[in-house]
């Protein structure tokens, strides 16, 4: 087993980050303000918060797709400029290229890195097998189910061997059974590879079941982290069984006490 980087070092650090957007009517909407967040290397951090609280914006800051208006983003100790080359990003939406087969989609990152075609193809096959899609290499995305497409996207992200994996509600659109299978697969792969994971979700149960630490974001505008909860449940975990652990229920209640207030606030403010 290889370690991406020495454990304990800080993989991602946000300091006083602020990000606003222009609204269509000419105003300014502050999505995030005074955001401080640290993610240690090899840590699995879940980010929960009410809808519209800027969770995706926060991920985009770490990904380098959006620059912060103020504050700094550091990746492994150095300030981030442009796209975060040490991270990969599993989007909530379907982002596979419809004109490429599953295999061609998975090898995309290697093609961009000028890896020879045959080698890229070999690795893509191996990754498809690891995410349980052996025999589906030549299918086009529209010939795959939603869960299978997510698996392809996961393989597409992992093949470039990123040190940091950013995930934006990746399983939100899946049915419950598929979702739990995917969560377990993700945990298994994370256990083997020890990537640093920043996982955004609005589902608190999913957050606790997967992560080492749950960070609660306040309702927007000007959302920021308002609570942190270490998750001391034993690993390796099974997402279905871990929910039965009494400690899980206890943790859920504590986090929900905080989160509920933010959810209600977001609800009253409206979208």
């Amino acid at each position: 087993m290889k370690l991406a980087s020495p454990p304990g070092t800080c993989a991602v650090r946000l300091q006083g980050c602020r990000r606003s957007f222009r609204t269509p009517d000419g105003g300014v909407y502050v999505a995030l303000d005074r955001v401080d967040l640290e993610v240690r290397a090899g840590e699995f951090v879940a980010l929960v918060g009410p809808t519209g609280c800027g969770k995706s914006t926060l991920l985009n800051l770490v990904a380098g797709l959006l620059p912060p208006d103020a504050g700094r983003v550091e990746v492994f100790g150095s300030p981030l400029e442009g796209i975060n080359r040490r991270a990969s990003y599993l989007f909530q939406q379907d982002v596979l290229l419809p004109w490429k087969t599953a295999e061609e989609n998975v090898m995309l990152g290697l093609v961009f890195r000028r890896v020879p075609r045959e080698e890229a193809r070999r690795q893509a096959r191996a990754w498809l097998e690891r995410v349980g899609l052996r025999g589906f290499e030549n299918r086009y995305p529209h010939q795959l189910s939603g869960g299978m497409r997510k698996r392809v996207a996961l393989a597409q992200n992992l093949i470039v061997d990123p040190e940091i994996l950013l995930m934006d509600e990746p399983f939100a659109a899946l049915d419950v059974q598929t979702r739990q299978l995917m969560e377990n697969d993700l945990l298994r792969i994370w256990q083997e590879e020890r990537k640093t994971v920043l996982f955004v979700t609005h589902d608190l149960e999913e957050a606790i079941a997967l992560s080492d630490r749950v960070v609660v974001l306040s309702a927007g505008p000007a959302a920021r982290p308002v609570g942190e909860f270490p998750v001391d449940l034993p690993r390796p975990r099974d997402v279905t069984e871990v929910r039965l652990d009494p400690a899980f229920g206890e943790l859920f209640r504590r986090i929900w006490d905080l989160l509920r207030g933010e959810v209600l606030r977001a609800f009253r403010l409206g979208p």
């Binding site: 990904a63 797709l65 796209i83 995309l108 990152g109 890195r113």
Partner: peptide, 8 residues
């Protein structure tokens, strides 16, 4: 953005 993140 996905393609960009993958290094395009």
């Amino acid at each position: 953005n996905n393609a960009r993140m993958l290094g395009a």
